[in-house]
Each structure stands twice: as structure tokens, then as C-alpha cells.
């Protein structure tokens, strides 16, 4: 039904940690400009899948095609330079450096467009401009999450992987973060979001994959899944 270009295509991907299979033969696609979410309980394999895409975890079998190129055996720095980035869970930042230095590091593979990118990141996150000379570790949790997102945007990615952006943040901040993700998508960024908060994820994304014990259990359009009684029962608290 879709004839759009795939930006990311995952085929039969498996990831194992010793005897544990965290991801089992997963197939997944993200089209150009699409906003795809990945929901499922804790330990369903969402984070492992994202880490495998970025080459942080080794793919045991299967292929990961990014813009038609197989990246499943490439090193993380090569993958990042191709235009993929991960906004990790738990706002991982360089906490002893300033906000500006964090953003400079984000531009490792894209130093030429630095000033332009910086101004763009500041328009998404005006708070970062205000805090740019402050030490990153002194920011609030929400601000650190924004810095983590801003740093990822500095690399001018073609596809953004987002892992649990709502984790441990106040509801108001969560709404703000999801608004920004939506805005980024409208401006043309493709997004793959892993999120435990199924309601938020389904409301914001176009399509959704539901993961269960390492496998894709259900997939479909988010607008349809959100009314699916089975999904409502399992992931939306039956409401």
C-alpha cells in the first residue's frame, strides 16, 4: 500500500545477550518522513533494538538497511556519520561540560553547518540558549532531556531514534517533549520512537509496532491501534 522510500528497513534482526534473546527476528520499516513508534512493556526488547540499529549492540543475524546501505556490521561512529542518531533513555549528557560544549560535541560529524544548526536547535529549545554557558549537570531533568535531544539534532540526522523520552519527567515536560518531537517530524525528520507510555506514543505517531518478549506482536496505523480493544486492554490500562 505504501510506495514511499524506506529510510530504514530491518530484516530478521536478532540480538542476544549470552543465553538471552532480547530481539527475535524482527522486521521493521520506517519511510521517509514517517513517525513510527515502538511500544511494549519493560524488557520487550525496544532499547536493544534501537541499540542494535546504532551498532552499540551487535546484531546476531539479520540486516539493517539505512538508505539502502547495510549498516548491521558497521561501527557506531560510521553509522552516526551516515545520518542516524539515538536520543538515549535517561538523558545521557556530558554533565561536567557546558551546554554549548555538549552541543559542539553533537556536531562531531557535521562541523561545517555548526552555527546554522546551533541557531535551529535554539529555536526548538530556547531554554538551551539561555543556559548555554551553564554546566550541563546543573540543569533540571527536563532541560537535560532537551539538551540530549538538541545534541542529537546537531548532527543533522536523517532519522532520529528516541528511547523513552518521557522517563522520569514531570507530565508537563513530557507533553512539551512530545510536542517538539511532533514538530520535528512535521519539519521532515523521520522518527523511530520507543516508549512505554503507549497512549502518548500512539497519539503522536503515524504507525506503531507493538513488541512483546523480543518479537513484533502487532503492527498497524496508530490511529487504528488506539481503538483496538486488545491494545487498550494490554497497554492503555483498559480505559
Amino acid at each position: 500500500m505504501k510506495k514511499k522510500n524506506n529510510i530504514l528497513k530491518i530484516e530478521h534482526l536478532s540480538v542476544t545477550y549470552g543465553p538471552i534473546k532480547a530481539v527475535k527476528k524482527v522486521n521493521l520499516e520506517v519511510s521517509q518522513g514517517e513517525y513510527v513508534s515502538l511500544i511494549g512493556a519493560n524488557g520487550a526488547g525496544k532499547t536493544s533494538l534501537l541499540k542494535a540499529i546504532l551498532g552499540i549492540e551487535k546484531a546476531e543475524e539479520g540486516n539493517i538497511l539505512f538508505l539502502g546501505e547495510d549498516i548491521s556490521r558497521k561501527a557506531t561512529d560510521k553509522i552516526v556519520s551516515l545520518g542516524l542518531c539515538l536520543i538515549p533513555e535517561g538523558h545521557i549528557i556530558f554533565s561536567s561540560m557546558t551546554v554549548l560544549e555538549n552541543l559542539q560535541l553533537g556536531a562531531y560529524h557535521n562541523p561545517s553547518g555548526f552555527e546554522e544548526n546551533l541557531q535551529r536547535v535554539f529555536t526548538y529549545f530556547p531554554i538551551l540558549k539561555k543556559r548555554s554557558s551553564q554546566i550541563a549537570g546543573t540543569l533540571s531533568g527536563g532541560e537535560q532531556q532537551m539538551l540530549s535531544m538538541g545534541r542529537a539534532l546537531m548532527s543533522k540526522p536523517k532519522l532520529i531514534l528516541v528511547d523513552e523520552p518521557s522517563l522520569g519527567l514531570a507530565p508537563k515536560t513530557v507533553t512539551e517533549i512530545f510536542d517538539i518531537l511532533g514538530e520535528l517530524n512535521r519539519e521532515g525528520y523521520s522518527i523511530l520512537l520507543a516508549e512505554q507510555n503507549a497512549k502518548k506514543a500512539l497519539e503522536s505517531s503515524h504507525r506503531c509496532y507493538v513488541m512483546k518478549t523480543g518479537e513484533v506482536a502487532i503492527t498497524g496505523f496508530s490511529s487504528e491501534l488506539i481503538d483496538d480493544p486488545q491494545i487498550r486492554q494490554a497497554y492503555l490500562g483498559g480505559s
Binding site: I56, T76, L86, I92, S95, L105, G106
Partner: peptide, 15 residues
């Protein structure tokens, strides 16, 4: 300094 401080984050930004 980035690698020194947070190897994982340094890896994520593509160093």
C-alpha cells in the same frame, strides 16, 4: 574529555 567523562555518550555522538 568527552570520552573520559561518558564513553557511552561519546559513542552516541559518533566519536
Amino acid at each position: 574529555r568527552a570520552i573520559a567523562e561518558n564513553r557511552y555518550a561519546a559513542c552516541l555522538v559518533g566519536i
